[in-house]
């Protein structure tokens, strides 16, 4: 039985990783806490649901959802965020607005009701794990999380583009001094964040439900994961996802109402004691000495 709970925790972790990795990278390179990510998540959620309802396979629907969200993010970055390039406060406020607009837009088009995600065949079946049925779909979550992680690592560690992104995450000024144009790099990472959020949205539908509040409902969890992992760190996000996913599954197994509360408390404690996150290095402390 415990094996079943642990496996459920890992599958949650995989989902949280996909959900949060983009947000973490975007913060790393832009210094912006991207509330709009919840909006792209929602766009992906509904895009995948719509396509599944119209006969598309799950994987195609999920990839298309990522693409649609990515394009949405790119447009938002270009039209709304780029003009506020040197105004992080304004960017933060704008992403909040984008989240509200996208949530309301989805609400308008598809209505406030909870939609049924049409799942069938293998993905709707279960396997016995530890004496309890375990949904096959959750295995797909784990696989997706793993693939996304490997792809991100390959991109960041194995390509010159990834090297530039890591440079920009560490210091935008230094990157520019090295002749790197950071502006297009930011758009690119922002779009990547949109793609990941949209893909996460597609993954969420079958186990979380399809409804307009889904974006804001998962927002807090995303923040918890990126804070504990350290903003800007993909490895940290993975570790934090595992911690939060397992904590949620285990605490939730014994006291369902407490799971989220415990995780939020963990986030507050980490912010106070170690604002750079468990694995991050860039501190978020108020500097009292620097000019």
């Amino acid at each position: 039985m415990i094996a079943n709970v642990v496996l459920a925790g890992i599958s949650l972790a995989a989902f949280y990783f996909v959900l949060s990795a983009g947000l973490s990278l975007v913060f790393g390179i832009m210094g912006v806490l991207n509330f709009a990510s919840a909006g792209y998540f929602l766009v992906g959620l509904y895009a995948a649901w719509y396509m599944l309802g119209h006969g598309s396979g799950f994987l195609v629907a999920a990839l298309a959802a990522g693409l649609i969200s990515g394009v949405t993010a790119l447009i938002v970055e270009f039209v709304m965020l780029r003009p506020l390039y040197r105004n992080p406060g304004g960017q933060l406020l704008t992403t909040l607005g984008v989240m509200l607009i996208l949530t309301e837009a989805v609400n308008w088009v598809f209505g406030p009701q909870i939609q049924q995600e049409p799942m069938q065949g293998l993905l709707a079946s279960t396997l016995p794990v530890g004496g309890l049925p375990f949904p096959v779909y959750r295995l797909l979550l784990i696989a997706s999380g793993l693939v996304i992680y490997l792809l991100l690592v390959a991109l960041l560690r194995g390509t010159s583009l990834g090297l530039k992104v890591r440079a920009g995450v560490e210091s935008q000024t230094l990157a520019e001094l090295s002749g790197i144009r950071v502006l297009p790099l930011r758009s690119l990472v922002y779009a990547l964040g949109g793609i990941l959020a949209g893909f996460a949205g597609a993954l969420y539908g079958p186990f979380g439900g399809v409804y307009p509040g889904a974006g804001t409902d998962t927002l807090l969890l995303t923040f918890i994961v990126v804070v504990i992992g350290g903003l800007g760190s993909v490895g940290g996000t993975l570790v934090a996802s595992l911690i939060i996913g397992l904590a949620e599954a285990l605490v939730g197994f014994y006291a369902p109402n407490l799971a989220l509360t415990v995780n939020v408390l963990a986030m507050i404690i980490v912010l106070i004691l170690r604002p750079q996150g468990l694995l991050g290095r860039a501190p978020g402390r108020r500097d009292t000495h620097a000019a």
């Binding site: 090297l163 995450v169 560490e170 210091s171 002749g179 290095r281």
Partner: peptide, 16 residues
């Protein structure tokens, strides 16, 4: 003015 998080090799790669 070197990238602390990057290796010596990566720092050089970014230079030129």
């Amino acid at each position: 003015g070197v990238f602390q998080e990057l290796s010596v090799l990566e720092n050089l790669r970014l230079a030129g």
